[in-house]
Design a binder for these strands. Structure first.
Length: 608
DNA sequence: TTAGGGTTAG
């Protein structure tokens, strides 16, 4: 009877001490039996038991047994390394490897090196991998396909670019399907889907065998570049290879359709799938989350009716869907379900909840979740900054940014966009300009059109319209209509008719179908007494501009969400809306708000 | 005793 059978027969988490003792005694004093009844050597039995402990998650027991083993050969050390790695304890796996190298004469074989390289990938350490690479060369194990593939994987995952991975890939004499898939995945997972697809094509042209793994990663590459055309070609090839019944492959196809925003194809694919698991449902729910949040939520209900239990991924999408709808009561219900299922404290879910509460108007609840989070990441901080900014608390958002940097959380482009928007709304112009400079100089983030737009807005709102214009002129790319639109708003607010006219002409040249632009230009001409030009603009608008889609509002009354446009009748509930509008008007009057009626007058007149 | 694929957030 081997150790694994002993463990399975005991059906308990603790291996009886008597059995363990007998194993250890046997190792010291092996029984004298003759073949063919010679039992396995004790070290093999103990190593088998070690593996069994890890398979059952009994990490402490595995460590104790390993420490008590009188003989530890390379297999035992490797089992310990791979055991820790299989339990996601990559750092401990690395320490075991170091102990083996420092304190014993045991030398690593190809199994040890490939397992330890996997640990390097787990701790995301290029330098650990490079260290092992040197050892691989020294030991003359560069010819092992397992070691080469593991090394390729570390470089493809942990390096800033694919140069080192490419060098390793070139050195592999006889590449197998794992080499190709690892190389394709390296490009794809870092967002270079085109190169991923290019390597996939090269694999096929060089006679590499496509298989479920390579198809899945190639489909992911299509999704990352939003190429539904390539994706459909791959879908057809997958069906041709008879892989349209392979669940992971079909989940990747479904994901591709969702990411390419081809929801009809996604729905058809989902309906035709013969097997579905939780990932299938989660993929569809996430696919609908932005484009059609109501369908996302109804898909979640269908999933529960089918008897599947939602997990963190499911709730993450559902919370985001509810955030898009900004229905607070619904969000609170979902939050309750999350807590009831014991999923509270999950980082990604907490981040989604912060965003949901902030978008639903309850910044206090968002803050409470943030404060209770055991660990926070960049998204947690940024979500709070955006939340504070959108609620008009610009100073708080800026304080949050400062606090975040103190906690050594490195801001990215989105975090800078959030803090620049906050500065803009709080009138902190000089501070905002300093953040912009710091983004470029200290964090080496190249400003994109959105960031430039934020800076134009920052200067423009503060009345520094000339500076905003100079900034637009100095941009390293052609400004788009949103940047000119931002300048236009500033010109309008601070009375700069010349620059305003220029901005309008730029907007019209880039987007000639936006009715509001003609309205503003018509008004500028009218204010200047140029009535002929003003009338000309209105005529042009009728000919060129598309009819504006009516602005839709939604309101929650007695746990029901109602969506309406101006002039809609909502039966008895309209009284409630009228009542709220009266209160809002009263508040505005009290705050001495003077409405800008420019658009309003012309909208009525021109029926737009 | 070793390797590769499918789903989360700002």
């Amino acid at each position: 009877m081997n150790a694994r059978k002993l463990v399975s027969q005991t059906h308990c988490t603790q291996i009886p001490q008597t059995i363990k003792n007998s194993l250890l005694c046997a190792a010291i004093d092996p029984p004298h039996s003759n073949p063919p009844f010679l039992p396995k050597p004790p070290s093999i039995l103990a190593t088998g038991l070690l593996k069994s402990y890890f398979e059952r998650g009994l990490i402490r027991e595995a460590r104790t047994l390993f420490d008590e083993m009188p003989e530890r050969d390379v297999v035992a050390w490797t089992t310990m390394i791979s055991g820790y790695t299989s339990c996601n304890l990559h750092g401990r796996a690395w320490v075991v490897f170091c102990d083996m190298m420092r304190f014993t004469d045991v030398r690593p074989n190809e199994f040890t090196l490939s397992c330890t390289l996997k640990a390097c990938k787990g701790i995301n350490s290029y330098s650990h991998g490079a260290l092992l690479h040197g050892l691989v060369m020294k030991q003359g194990m560069g010819g092992s396909i397992y070691v080469s593939n593991a090394l390729l994987d570390v470089y493809a995952t942990c390096c800033v670019n694919m140069d080192e991975a490419s060098a390793v890939f070139q050195e592999i004499r006889e590449r197998n399907d794992v080499s190709w898939t690892t190389f394709i995945a390296g490009y794809t997972h870092r967002g270079d889907g085109y190169m991923g697809l290019s390597v996939f094509r090269r694999m096929l042209s060089e006679g590499g065998e496509s298989n479920p793994f390579s198809f899945s990663i190639a489909v992911r590459a299509c999704a990352s570049v939003h190429s539904c055309t390539y994706g459909k070609q791959l879908h057809a090839a997958i069906a041709k290879h008879g892989l349209d019944f392979n669940l992971p492959v079909m989940n990747s196809i479904l994901d591709m359709y969702c990411r390419c925003n081809s929801l009809n194809d996604a729905k058809q694919c989902f309906n035709e799938m013969t097997q579905r698991d939780l990932i299938t449902w989660n993929t569809l729910i996430a696919g609908y989350e932005k484009s059609d949040p109501y369908v996302s939520i109804s898909t979640y209900s269908c999933m529960e009716l089918e008897g599947l239990s939602p997990n963190c991924f499911t709730f993450s999408s559902i919370v985001a869907a509810v955030a898009n709808l900004a229905i607070l009561s619904c969000g609170e219900q979902i939050h309750g379900r999350i807590l009831k299922r014991g999923l509270g404290g999950n980082l990604e879910l907490d981040n989604a909840l912060i965003d949901m509460y902030a978008k639903s108007g309850n910044i206090g609840s968002a803050r409470r979740i943030f404060d209770k989070m055991p660990t926070k990441n960049l998204v947690s901080w940024t979500s709070m900054m955006i939340g504070y900014g959108s609620h008009g608390y610009g100073n708080e958002a800026v304080d949050f940014f400062e606090e975040m940097v103190k906690f050594r959380v490195r801001p990215d482009r989105i975090a800078f966009e959030a803090v620049l928007n906050a500065c803009s709304h709080a009138g902190l112009v000089d501070k905002g300009v300093r953040y912009f400079m710091s983004m470029v100089d200290d964090y080496n983030i190249a400003p994109d059109p959105e960031i430039f737009g934020c800076l134009v807005d920052l200067l423009g709102r503060a009345g520094r319209v000339e500076e905003a214009f100079k900034l637009i002129e100095s941009m390293p790319f052609d400004p788009d209509e949103s940047v000119w639109g931002t300048l236009l708003r500033a010109c309008k607010a601070h009375n700069h008719p010349d620059l305003g006219t220029l901005a309008i002409r730029k907007v019209l040249a880039l987007k000639p179908k936006i009715a509001a632009t003609y309205v503003i230009l018509s008004n500028i001409y009218a204010a200047d007494g140029k009535w002929g030009d003003s009338a000309k603009m209105r005529k042009l608008m009728r000919r060129m501009a598309t009819k504006k889609e009516a602005g839709r509002s939604s309101v929650e009354i007695k746990n029901q969400n109602y969506s309406f446009v101006a002039g809609d009748k909502m039966g008895p509930h309209m009284d409630c809306v009228d009542e709220v509008v009266k209160i809002l008007v009263e508040h505005m009057r009290h705050a001495r708000y003077i409405p800008d009626l420019d658009f309003f007058i012309h909208d009525l007149e021109d029926g737009i």
